[in-house]
Design a protein around this nucleic acid. Structure first.
Lengths: 221, 221
DNA sequence: ACCTGAACACCGTTCAAGT
DNA sequence: ACCTGAACACCGTTCAAGT
């Protein structure tokens, strides 16, 4: 069998299988040979549909970005910018924590991924509409992404080791409970995310309030 | 030459060469064979000093964490918690942007890396001393790390492509200047970091002010 | 104790050959 | 156009052998 009359593969089928493999066994489990085997074809077949492996992983990451709810940034939506930003962050984080293994790929920035770019575009547009100057709107899109992807990637939960002997109190005087139960650690992640998100938006609101007042150019002295 | 009277390798020498290689050519350039060649030995020699390649990269990442200034968290230091947190974030980010290629390793949380843990320990201790409840102090350490590593990893600067044709305005109506000059993009990164850091700390200060006032348990109704 | 070469079981990617 | 097997130039890691 050299070429079937009906194609065995498609970009969608490849991305689907790759995503399932990443979710089930992690990024390292994805090799072109393994992925091809999962699809019932031989390794090089993939290169008829993607230029290289990274392109496949980018597509998987973009599929996750595509799940982020952006309705709060719709001009017709009634939510104010603070609420919109909050809801966006929560939805983004939920998408990432559902597929934690792909986050390292996603965290490197939107790059050429269409859905990732659509997210950036939506945030920027909504912030400008809400009255933020374009430069600040760009900053907000970037800094929200920093915080959200940073929280999904470097989660406190996965950052510590389940080994009581790993953290000598002589070395880390305040880390007595560092090797918490995994469940407890997830609570820490959620608490840190919520606390940080609230702080971020409250702090931005302070800057927003001062937008008008400090706008006049400095007078000569 | 099977075994020299004076060891050819040491953990420090290996980590030094690995760090230099990561900085110069990126994470992907580090293979055990390549690294060994750089050190004038054969590949398997490395396994006399480290259990595996990941351990070497962890050590490189920890070397970067070790460069983070923590003096602002010293009990003898006069800086208040807000200033300390700010100065810490700036120092942390500076360490990461000096070695951007190792950030993906570092961003996955402190794990077993001693210097990374020392950082977490210092933040926690200082926040508790400043009057934050332990749970909140834990959150602050985590959320600051989220934001800082997120900003170093998913930097806006590296996130876009230097190609005018990459961003069709029909797809991304607000991304007209997405393919900015690299220099301009670095400015965006810095602006987003500073804006986010200020917002984060201002927002935390609001929560700090309310620590005392909302502490009494809710009354039965 | 510390380095070596050989070996194992893999990789990503290219390419001519097949239909 | 789309899949194949063979091949190239690599990987990380193990291990017996050497001093």
């Amino acid at each position: 069998m050299a070429r079937p009359r009906k194609p065995l593969l498609s970009r969608d089928r490849i991305v689907g299988a790759a995503g399932a493999l990443v979710d089930a066994e992690g990024l390292d489990a994805v090799s072109t040979r393994r992925l091809a085997a999962e699809l019932g074809v031989s390794g090089p077949s993939l290169y008829n549909h993607f230029h290289n492996k990274d392109e496949i992983l980018d597509a998987v990451a973009d599929g996750v970005s595509a799940k982020v709810d952006l309705s709060m940034f719709d001009p017709a939506d009634s939510r104010d910018w603070r609420t919109a930003l909050h809801d966006y962050a929560v939805s983004y984080r939920a998408a990432l924590t559902e597929h934690p293994n792909i986050v390292p790929v996603l965290a490197r920035g939107p790059g050429r991924r269409p859905a990732g770019l659509r997210v950036a575009d939506a945030v920027f547009g909504a912030m400008v509409r809400a009255g933020w100057p374009p430069a600040q709107a760009t900053y907000i899109g970037a800094l929200m992404r920093y915080f959200i992807t940073g929280s999904a990637l470097g989660s406190f939960a996965s950052g510590f080791v389940d080994d009581e002997t790993a953290y000598d109190p002589a070395d880390y005087p305040h880390l007595g409970q560092a090797h918490l139960l995994a469940q407890r650690r997830q609570k820490v992640d959620e608490g840190a995310f919520e606390t940080g998100l609230r702080a971020l938006i409250d702090g931005l609101a302070l800057q927003y309030e001062q937008l008008g007042t400090v706008r006049q150019p400095p007078k000569g002295r």
